[in-house]
């Protein structure tokens, strides 16, 4: 906090010098001091309602998500909240089958053999074989995408969320090569062409072409004390909480159920757990 304030004062100071413009230098210094006095008690902090954790984690109970119909509202809730463009919208003037290459998804469904390619077997039981799985960014405890980013545009937050800073991303796509879960999408084109004005959530920004995007664990909702959109839309099939709080709902579920994670053997520490 202290360093933030200092940084802010510096910025304010510099801008004060800017205002001075043609005024004599002495005058400029005087106005800088004025500025400092005015900004001395500026405070930047979290909202009181904000939810915090050491490592946010999710437990997806696949027993409660039987069919595509069960997943659809969850995916829709996420993609609507975050203005994720639907490049495969056949009603859009820009629609083209080839748009498949540029698809953007934060959370989507996969068959077991694709969600868990290393755990797949020919003689899988019928339920798992036909069960749609929800996949999204795993918000790994040891994320390879964060390791490779040359600008820290993707970074691990204090609460374990692997977040994208869209302002800083240069679009090198190293993170897409590094992610072993295919969780990242690139804006090959302007996404706005595929977001209808009436569908747009005005409270969340869209993206611009040339940056990578992915699930943000609803950082913007946690900041005001709300659960992630997918959790809210899941009718209790998805639990969300702090992995390192023994009292949290996710820990309770992990204690009493056998869970699996995607490509656990790679050492990335995925924070999405599946009850199968």
């Amino acid at each position: 906090m202290e360093s933030n304030r200092r940084k802010f004062l510096k910025v304010a100071g510099i801008s004060a010098l800017g205002i001075a413009g043609a005024k004599p230098v002495l005058n400029a210094f005087a106005s800088e001091q004025e500025e400092e006095a005015q900004h001395a008690d500026v405070e930047i902090r979290k909202n009181e309602k904000a939810l915090t954790a050491r490592q946010w984690a999710m437990v997806i109970d696949t027993r409660k998500l039987q069919s595509e119909e069960d997943l659809k509202p969850i995916i829709e809730a996420c993609h609507k909240t975050h203005n994720v463009p639907d490049v495969m919208d056949t009603e859009n003037a820009e629609y083209d089958e080839d748009n498949q290459r540029h698809v953007i998804k934060w959370i989507w469904e996969e068959e077991y053999k694709h969600a868990f390619p290393t755990k797949s077997t020919e003689f899988l039981d019928d339920r798992l074989k036909n069960l749609p799985f929800l996949v999204l960014c795993n918000h790994c405890e040891n994320p390879p995408c964060v390791r490779v980013c040359p600008t820290k545009a993707t970074f691990k937050r204090e609460d374990g969320i692997v977040l994208m800073d869209f302002h800083r991303c240069i679009g090198c796509r190293f993170c897409m090569a590094a992610c072993p879960y295919g969780s990242r999408s690139f804006n090959f084109r302007d996404p706005r062409e595929f977001i209808k004005d009436e569908d747009r959530n005005p409270e969340f920004p869209t993206r611009m072409k040339g940056v990578v995007e992915k699930c943000n664990f609803c950082a913007e909702r946690l900041a005001v004390g709300k659960q992630p959109a997918c959790v809210e839309a899941s009718n209790g099939a998805i639990a969300f909480g702090d992995l390192y709080d023994p009292e949290s709902e996710v820990r309770q579920l992990l204690k009493s159920n056998y869970t699996i994670r995607r490509k656990q053997g790679l050492g990335t520490g995925p924070a999405i757990y599946y009850i199968v």
Binding site: N4, Q38, H39, A40, D41, V42, E43, I44, R45, K46, N47, A50, F155, R157, E158, D159, L163, D165, H167, A219, A223, V224
Partner: peptide
């Protein structure tokens, strides 16, 4: 930077 990187979303002015 504060909002995206430090998760601070509240600004209290002087």
């Amino acid at each position: 930077d504060e909002v995206v990187r430090s998760a601070n979303r509240l600004y209290v002015n002087s």
